[in-house]
Simulated assay, not measured.
Amino acid sequence: MMMLAIGSSAYDLAIYHLYCHAFFKALLFMSAGSIIHSFISETQDMRKYGGLIEYLPFSYTSMVVASLSLMAIPGLTGYYSKDIIIESLYGTYTVSGYIMYYIATASATLTAIYSIRVLYLTFYNNPRSNKYTY
């Protein structure tokens, strides 16, 4: 998103998204570190997680808030920074602006899909590891 904003000469929007992105990405990384270090084996393979919502409620809450912001849900900072960039791309009324608009929309969609996947595999899925690691 930042590079798309820079490409359309919206430098102020790129810096705004940089700041917003830094905060919710930092929250995601701190939540991920909390989850990784809570496992005995400290595995980073999400496929071995599952059912951690009961064991790590604070990590779950912070991961959900950060993921919702990353998915650009209205009311959170990710929405305001991504939405204004996507709108400005569409508002250039050029062929390259429209192409960048569709790339940004596809990128935001894929981001939402992998954020939902992370939440599902880590917290809602059935536990896939032995009891010792929990």
Results as ranks from 00 to 15, higher is better:
residue 68 L to D: 07
residue 100 M to C: 06
residue 126 N to Q: 13
residue 19 Y to L: 14
residue 118 V to A: 13
residue 55 Y to H: 15
residue 8 S to F: 09
residue 85 I to F: 05
residue 80 Y to D: 02
residue 86 I to P: 02
residue 56 L to G: 05
residue 58 F to W: 06
residue 16 Y to N: 04
residue 110 L to T: 04
residue 28 L to S: 02
residue 52 L to Y: 04
residue 35 I to E: 10
residue 89 L to P: 00
residue 38 S to R: 14
residue 13 L to S: 10
residue 119 L to M: 14
residue 88 S to P: 05
residue 29 F to N: 03
residue 28 L to Y: 03
residue 49 Y to N: 08
residue 49 Y to A: 08
residue 54 E to Q: 10
residue 62 S to A: 12
residue 53 I to V: 14
residue 73 I to Q: 00
residue 111 T to N: 10
residue 105 T to D: 03
residue 50 G to P: 15
residue 81 S to V: 05
residue 111 T to E: 04
residue 126 N to F: 13
residue 92 T to H: 06
residue 62 S to L: 15
residue 99 I to H: 06
residue 54 E to S: 12
residue 122 T to I: 12
residue 87 E to Y: 11
residue 110 L to C: 08
residue 115 S to E: 04
residue 42 E to T: 05
residue 35 I to W: 08
residue 29 F to P: 08
residue 130 N to R: 09
residue 123 F to H: 01
residue 128 R to M: 14
residue 30 M to R: 04
residue 44 Q to D: 13
residue 19 Y to V: 15
residue 26 A to N: 06
residue 78 G to H: 01
residue 56 L to Q: 12
residue 88 S to H: 11
residue 46 M to I: 15
residue 35 I to C: 08
residue 71 M to C: 10
residue 106 A to H: 08
residue 63 M to A: 10
residue 66 A to E: 05
residue 45 D to W: 10
residue 130 N to A: 08
residue 7 G to T: 10
residue 37 H to D: 12
residue 122 T to H: 03
residue 131 K to G: 15
residue 131 K to H: 13
residue 37 H to N: 13
residue 116 I to Q: 01
residue 87 E to K: 15
residue 131 K to V: 15
residue 118 V to M: 13
residue 130 N to W: 12
residue 24 F to S: 06
residue 61 T to C: 14
residue 90 Y to T: 00
residue 118 V to H: 10
residue 94 T to L: 01
residue 99 I to Q: 06
residue 52 L to V: 09
residue 47 R to I: 15
residue 86 I to D: 00
residue 65 V to N: 02
residue 91 G to W: 01
residue 130 N to L: 14
residue 122 T to E: 01
residue 67 S to L: 04
residue 83 D to S: 06
residue 14 A to R: 12
residue 77 T to N: 08
residue 112 A to F: 05
residue 61 T to Y: 07
residue 52 L to S: 11
residue 125 N to W: 00
residue 16 Y to K: 00
residue 63 M to I: 03
residue 129 S to R: 15
residue 14 A to D: 00
residue 80 Y to L: 14
residue 69 S to Y: 02
residue 11 Y to G: 14
residue 70 L to E: 07
residue 120 Y to K: 14
residue 134 Y to Q: 14
residue 44 Q to H: 15
residue 96 S to K: 08
residue 89 L to N: 02
residue 85 I to E: 02
residue 21 H to C: 06
residue 122 T to F: 05
residue 116 I to W: 11
residue 92 T to A: 09
residue 3 M to G: 15
residue 111 T to A: 07
residue 55 Y to A: 12
residue 28 L to R: 02
residue 75 G to Q: 03
